[in-house]
Design a binder for these strands. Structure first.
Lengths: 217, 217
DNA sequence: GTACAACTGGACGGAACCGTCCTGTTGGGT
DNA sequence: ACCCAACAGGACGGTTCCGTCCAGTTGTAC
């Protein structure tokens, strides 16, 4: 039953329209009729491509996720200095400022709404965040290689911190309709790297007590 | 028409039940019939207390918000050292670990789902985040007063960074069903304070170039 | 130029959900 | 003992939305 030619194209059109609607109205706020209407496709045709709405949501996650990660990859791949990182921050904040922070992060919003309701979707989003984190880890790896941040820095943890700072920034921007807190949040992460370098440069004194008093399970 | 006695009590019961349901199923996923049933109240009685669902959502935001802020206030008020901050981090992460990170932050989830749909609710949430940030600012103020972090540190910006780190951490924990990234994220913010202190202690060299290349509007 | 996939268009059932309304019953205050 | 707010319980209409179905049309590959 799965033969394709232009069929794939209209499927993409459906997903693209759904992604746009879900971004602005949320997943729950987006009707299949809306999607059908926006994508200029008949409903019967929709059900030829997707068994139900859940499947559509998953497809949207993949679509949005690939785009977001691809965009971030392109931008982060070029970063080799702290100033480069700041330019990346400017870019992502600027993009978000186009809507005054509305709708938040295309991935984060989906994650928040869907993670607890659809296990498969949750897993996809988990992978996407992991991919994003890996992009940061690669940037940090280059910074480390070039001696910009210390050799003993835990890249994975720092990368996690960056993803969290970005996501937290998105949420605050969304809530306040102002991207300033997002810029501030990401800034703090970047400054953190700077301070790490400085701490190493000046005597590596009392040492790195990353004390964590028995937390996570 | 607005006379009260025990009426306020059942109203609270409604809000409390709604808050629980919306936390686990989201706002859109919570039915008024669910609320009525869970709060053991008749539907006619519900509409005596609330004009519509929107009003209920706003009441839930206030209820959840006050509780969350009050809880955080109690914990953060006691913090006077970086180790105290780490104990606070342990506590909030531990709480979240009870559900393996599910449902995310009680405020953050609501903000994500409602901020773009209800202006009044958005404003309430904005105020709540501001209150939370202020709690952090007070902690940081004490740390600054006691010489634990530098005198010239921008407390408001750091406080914003903390709120964002917490929220980002919540989201990652929710998506991965693992609170570790949340602990990591908050840890980074705390370590940042430590590094700030160290950078000041060791020569206040090249200086604090908090370079921000023309971002926010 | 024919066969089949891709698609239109809309009717349709059924369920869920919001909000209204009405007939009572309970309970606390005075 | 009386009164009125607070409540139960459920019927009800209207809407929205999901998913199915089908009869007919367009496009495309071979």
């Amino acid at each position: 039953m799965r033969l394709t030619a232009r069929g794939a194209k209209t499927r993409d059109r459906i997903v693209e329209a759904a992604a746009g609607l879900m971004r602005t109205h949320g997943v729950g706020g987006t009707t299949l009729d809306d999607v059908v209407s926006a994508s200029d496709v008949s409903k019967s045709q929709f059900y030829r491509h997707f068994p139900d709405k859940t499947a559509l949501v998953r497809a949207v996650i993949e679509y949005v996720g690939e785009r977001k990660i691809a965009g971030e990859r392109e931008r982060l791949e070029a970063v080799r200095t702290l100033d480069g990182l700041r330019r990346w921050r400017d870019a992502i904040v600027h993009d978000n400022a186009l809507y005054d922070g509305r709708y938040g992060c295309s991935l984060g919003s989906l994650a928040n709404e869907v993670a607890d309701q659809d296990a498969i979707a949750r897993t996809k989003l988990e992978e996407l965040f992991a991919a994003w984190q890996e992009l940061f880890a690669q940037v940090l790896g280059r910074l480390q290689r070039d001696g910009i941040i210390p050799q003993d820095a835990d890249l994975a943890q720092l990368a996690t911190g960056f993803v969290a700072a970005v996501q937290g920034g998105y949420l605050l921007a969304q809530t306040s309709r102002d991207v300033t807190p997002m810029a501030t949040s990401i800034d703090m992460a970047i400054t953190h790297l700077q301070l790490l370098a400085r701490a190493e440069r000046d005597g590596s004194g009392a040492g790195d007590d990353h004390s964590r008093s028995g937390t996570a399970r």
